[in-house]
Amino acid sequence: QIFVKTLTGKTITLEVEPSDTIENVKAKIQDKEGIPPDQQRLIFAGKQLEDGRTLSDYNIQKESTLHLVL
């Protein structure tokens, strides 16, 4: 699982696999929060994550925290 922290300070927990794409993660966030993926920007280690890449591409491991910017 990974954590996604929103600007409001809320933390969302997501069940993911390293092979999941960023697009996939955004879809999971939409399921939980109702935020359309095209409004979501995910930041990890100061980098904006691209939809077509996977979590493992960015070396995002379990218990990692991503930041969600709208």
Rank of each mutant, 00 (worst) to 15 (best):
V16R: 02
N59Y: 07
L66R: 01
E23G: 13
L7P: 15
G9I: 02
D20N: 07
S64N: 10
Y58S: 03
T65Y: 07
Q30N: 09
S56D: 10
F44K: 03
H67R: 09
K26C: 02
Q48M: 12
I12S: 02
D20C: 08
D51N: 09
I2T: 02
S56L: 13
I29C: 02
L55Q: 01
E33Y: 08
E17K: 14
K10T: 09
V16A: 08
N24D: 11
D57K: 03
K5I: 15
D38A: 11
E23V: 07
K47L: 15
L66T: 02
K32W: 06
T11L: 14
T65F: 07
V4R: 00
F44C: 04
K26Q: 03
K26L: 04
S56I: 10
E17I: 13
T6V: 10
L68A: 02
Q1S: 10
D57R: 03
I12K: 01
G46V: 02
G34A: 05
I60S: 01
T54W: 04
Q1G: 05
P37R: 14
K5Y: 08
V16F: 13
I12C: 03
L70W: 09
T8V: 08
E50P: 03
I22Y: 01
I2S: 01
N24Q: 14
I2W: 02
K62R: 10
K26F: 03
T65E: 07
I35H: 08
P37T: 14
A27L: 15
V69I: 14
S64G: 06
T21V: 04
K10S: 07
V25C: 05
T11Y: 09
Q39T: 08
V25Y: 02
E63R: 07
N24G: 09
K47F: 12
S19F: 12
I2P: 00
L49F: 02
K62L: 10
T21F: 07
P37E: 09
L68H: 01
L70G: 11
K32V: 13
P36G: 06
H67A: 07
T13H: 06
T13F: 08
I29Q: 00
K5M: 13
I35L: 06
K62S: 14
T54F: 07
D31N: 09
K10R: 10
G9F: 04
A27K: 15
R41L: 14
I35F: 12
D51F: 04
V4Y: 02
L7F: 13
P36E: 07
P18S: 11
K26G: 01
G52D: 11
Q48V: 12
T6F: 14
E15I: 14
D57G: 04
L70K: 08
P18R: 06
D51L: 05
I60Y: 02
T6E: 04
S64I: 05
N59Q: 09
P18K: 06
I60G: 01
L49S: 00
L49N: 00
E50F: 07
D20E: 10
Q1H: 15
V69W: 10
E50N: 07
I43R: 05
H67S: 07
E23H: 10
Q48L: 11
Q39G: 06
G34V: 02
G34W: 03
A27S: 12
E15L: 13
R41S: 13
P18G: 10
E17S: 14
H67L: 13
D57E: 11
V4I: 13
D31S: 11
